[in-house]
Design a protein around this nucleic acid. Structure first.
Lengths: 241, 241
DNA sequence: AGGGGCTTGTGCATTCATTCACATGTCATG
DNA sequence: CATGACATGTGAATGAATGCACAAGCCCCT
């Protein structure tokens, strides 16, 4: 385990991204804003179906469960101009957000055809969001060639071919923890530059690769903490009151 | 849709929690730190199995994929005192973190026995993390009484009884979006105060309830954004270079 | 016993995110 | 056309998280 650096700490450094400005497009949308844009989209789609054509920042804030100032600042990042005194045009805003997020349909591949991988391959939200799952990949030869909920399962040795054939750009890792690093390495070797990791393991990637993590057990543990604190609080609170 | 406030914005306000100090215990561990504690735990368990008894902040940082200063600051929040010049005792640290996070085993209930709900009920990580799934709840009468991967399915009308009988304190919502609000409402009515929502919907809860959200489609959309930016960047970069 | 090499804990600076508050602008109505 | 109600966009204030650098402390070796 190589350790670099003479004085002081310094760990992983996130690669810069989205800082282009040259061609006028793509400003650097902050992470925090990015996580909310899809939520706004859902709210907008909802009201659009009811025939609403204009929303104020406050209405959208209510739909998204945030406050209005945040909505406005978020939207200002994509240059989406609403009309003062009026609000935002629903359809225009939908187009703008969708465009900022990438717009077109992007196929994804899932590595790991266990419980989680299968469930994810069936998850409607991916397809609905423009991310069809086009391949499942597993190291188990006995699954090779099978279809699972309409998605063909391929052996991990053919990953390169599958990725190339399907034109996938996003990879999802749903393997056990011990297999996660290899899964990611192979995805990267196959040319992918964006990976979503569901395995409860820390994996490292080259700096040009975007890695996001969804840690299911951790989410519960955080809730567990608050529950724990709340209960201790009540206990002491009773004593006091 | 009631809108309050005369001047200016102001939306949801997060309930304060963990700010007790009266009894000396439970300092207010910041969110950001909370999300990393479980990751440290995994790293510690890993090295503990290899017989390691002491780790430095830098070693732990490598295991967790963060930098050493962050590790030290995080650990300082739980008063975990390491030894200068030496490091942290692995077992002691495990005990401390585990204790801070709540310690004991907490049973959870999952609402929604669809694909996602079933997959989550089978997810090993929950059990391993001390969160056994003890009940699945669905509105489909035809599932009532069945066992799915060892977990009994109950109808939603009996939620109160199930929650009471099993002593659940954490609820997971894995319903379709349109059913999420009702699912949460029922969980809260049954007495739960901590909910993890997987449904792609904005739900509101009373201020004393802790709500966390895992938004699978959004995660992909964020990756999609970076992919999008990267590609435009390359395109313009080629033109320039 | 004392020196040198490590490592913790933390004050400080910096960056990122949130929120406030208001000037600027739009629309509808009389 | 003028007035008033309403909303945006954004500087500025606040707050949270990160990362740095160093004093204080521990251990081993001679």
């Amino acid at each position: 385990m190589a350790i670099a650096g003479t004085t002081s700490d310094r760990g992983q450094s996130l690669g810069e991204i989205g800082v282009v400005r040259s061609d006028g497009s793509s400003s650097p949308i902050p992470e925090a804003t990015l996580t909310r844009l899809p939520v706004y989209m859902r709210g907008l789609v909802e009201v659009a179906e009811d025939g609403v054509t204009t929303v104020s920042s406050r209405q959208l804030a209510d739909l998204a469960g945030v406050n209005a100032a945040k909505v406005r600042k978020d939207l200002s990042h994509l240059g989406a101009h609403g009309k003062r005194g009026v609000g935002y045009d629903v359809n225009r805003l939908l187009t703008e957000i969708s465009g900022a997020l990438g717009g077109s349909v992007t196929p994804v591949v899932i590595v790991g055809a266990g419980n989680l991988g299968r469930a994810l391959s069936r998850y409607d939200g991916f397809m609905a969001g423009g991310f069809p799952v086009v391949a499942l990949i597993d190291s188990d030869r006995s699954l090779e060639g099978r279809m699972i909920s309409g998605v063909p399962v391929t052996h991990v040795d053919e990953m390169d071919a599958v990725v190339a054939a399907t034109g996938c750009q996003l990879g999802i890792v749903a393997t056990p923890a011990h297999a996660a690093q290899e899964a990611v390495d192979r995805l990267v070797a196959a040319g992918l530059r964006s990976v979503l990791n569901f395995a409860p393991a820390v994996v490292s990637v080259p700096s040009e690769v975007q890695l996001r993590k969804v840690d299911l057990a951790t989410e519960l543990q955080i809730l567990g903490y608050y529950e724990h604190v709340r209960i201790s609080q009540e206990a002491t609170g009773q004593a006091v009151g």
